[in-house]
């Protein structure tokens, strides 16, 4: 430990500071360092092993002229926007319904949250079977007498991403519901009483009073949903394997496939740098608006 004279402030809470050194180092070396390393090597033509032979922006040019990457981006946009909307809306509605002091609330909460206990791999496999035309929904409806009924999203390149979306929502909405429910329970009873005395209808109370008061909960939820969207990978691998064809590819899978299966690290690094960039473009201005400017206690 250094005993040389230092400004007094640096030595305050010395134990706490020493204790946090490992975490700071981890964050700097592993996260920041790893990120910088990846971006740096995305300008090389590294194949199976990283090597320093620079090719400028070649990897990026190839990336953006690859049909599979473009499909991946499009799929991520569709999946992302719809997941955001539906999981917030459904999650909030379920939470509101559960908040009506109904009977067996615990039971319902458990049922809705249960899918979240399953991994994306299991979710993907389960929904692969449910959406399989020969064993799943289509077969059940047909056996009820509707013999012309067709529902096989996983085998139709145009709509396969919606099949993945259904599985994703099934898995994730329960958690969103719980977060929302916690937020609703955090609202003071007196607010409700006041609103009732003023004769404000329930739905208006929710939209104009409760939701604005739940802002911190919504922010947390948004972060959780968005990080889930960007990293979606295992669900697709288990449910469709990216197929049929390339119709349900996602960026994370492109990165993995090129880094490891295709033994082209440079291309994989370029793709992951683009993923990072998109996250930065969305998150940084938002985080600045949300957390910057004012200090919180």
């Amino acid at each position: 430990m250094s005993t040389s004279p230092r400004p007094y402030r640096l030595l305050r809470n010395l134990n706490a500071k020493i204790a946090s050194v490992p975490m700071i180092l981890t964050a700097l070396v592993i996260f920041v360092g790893g990120t910088a390393w990846t971006v740096f090597y995305s300008f090389t033509d590294s194949k199976l092993l990283p090597r320093l032979r620079f090719v400028g922006l070649d990897q990026y040019e190839r990336l953006w002229s690859t049909g599979r990457w473009l499909t991946s981006i499009e799929n991520l946009l569709i999946y992302g926007v719809l997941t955001l909307i539906f999981s917030l809306v459904i999650g909030f509605l379920l939470a509101v319904l559960l908040d009506q002091k109904i009977r067996f609330e615990d039971t319902f909460r458990t049922i809705f949250l249960y899918p979240f206990a399953l991994s994306f791999i299991v979710t993907g496999l389960v929904w692969q079977w449910i959406l399989n035309p020969e064993f799943g929904v289509q077969n059940v409806v047909r056996s009820l007498g509707f013999t012309e009924f067709v529902f096989d999203p996983l085998y139709d390149p145009d709509i396969v991403i919606y099949g993945v979306l259904i599985a994703g929502l099934w898995q994730g909405t329960g958690l969103i519901m719980c977060l929302m429910l916690a937020g609703l329970r955090g609202i003071d009873e007196d607010i409700w009483k006041a609103a009732r005395i003023d004769g404000i209808p329930t739905w208006k109370t929710y939209i104009f009073i409760i939701i604005p008061m739940m802002r911190p909960v919504f922010v947390t939820t948004l972060v959780i949903i968005m990080s889930g969207i960007v990293k979606v990978y295992d669900l697709v691998v288990a449910q469709t394997g990216g197929g049929p064809g390339n119709a349900s590819e996602v960026p994370a899978k492109y990165v993995y496939d090129f880094m490891f299966a295709a033994q082209n690290l440079g291309q994989g690094f370029a793709a992951s740098t683009m993923m990072l960039l998109s996250v930065v473009i969305i998150v940084v201005p938002w985080a600045y608006l949300e957390f910057g400017g004012k200090r919180r206690g």
């Binding site: 390149p157 064809g245 390339n246 119709a247």
Partner: peptide
């Protein structure tokens, strides 16, 4: 990738 796309679309 190309052939898989070709076969499925």
């Amino acid at each position: 990738d190309l052939m898989s796309e070709f076969f499925n679309d």
